[in-house]
Design a binder for these strands. Structure first.
Lengths: 91, 91
DNA sequence: ACTTTATTTAGATGATTATCTAAATATCAA
DNA sequence: TTGATATTTAGATAATCATCTAAATAAAGT
């Protein structure tokens, strides 16, 4: 869970996730959307991958990244928990 | 929004939020729950406050912290957006 | 076997961050 | 106003992080 929040704390990585929400994209396509270098994007993708927020699959020369909504659902669950009734678990 | 995610990227701060979910607490009470120094907790509280995730109110000698669920709801909205239908906004 | 294209790895650097101790501020009580 | 309690501010430090350039790896085409 900590990896998830850490990964999401960077705005570039959140934008990457937003891109992948629309459609799967190669590392290069993703990098095109940003003004930072490809190695930097690659680094961000590694962090997202370690957090299991994205998956990658080689397709010929390209590596296609896609969103893993499972982990996003888990994070969403954390927020739902924070909105539960105050002190609900005290009994 | 970035402040929110940045604030939530630290495990101590997330724990503080979980504590405040149960009940309002003074800075001292919060600090008791952790093994780090009071100034460090104070620093974390400042970050949470800047992100508007918590509110504070002086009550005598103590300063009582409470959760602001509005911002949590907004963050929850972000996650919901990431789970929407793929490419839903293309039309 | 080369060359091109796509991506990652390595190594370095500057910025941000979490933490600490010591000192300052604020409130209350005697 | 002095003393005790609660909290924050200041300043320092070590660790983490985002970024870069240069080099390495991998696949595909000629």
């Amino acid at each position: 869970m900590n990896d998830t929040f850490k990964a999401l704390s960077d705005p570039t990585r959140r934008q990457i996730i937003q891109l992948l929400k629309e459609r799967d994209m190669s590392a290069g396509e993703i990098a095109e959307q940003f003004s930072i270098s490809k190695p930097s994007i690659s680094h961000h993708l590694t962090i997202l991958k370690n957090a299991k927020l994205v998956q990658d699959e080689r397709q010929g020369q390209s590596i296609i990244y896609s969103l893993n909504t499972t982990v996003i659902q888990e994070a969403l669950g954390w927020f739902l928990g924070m909105l539960g009734t105050k002190g609900e678990d005290e009994k």
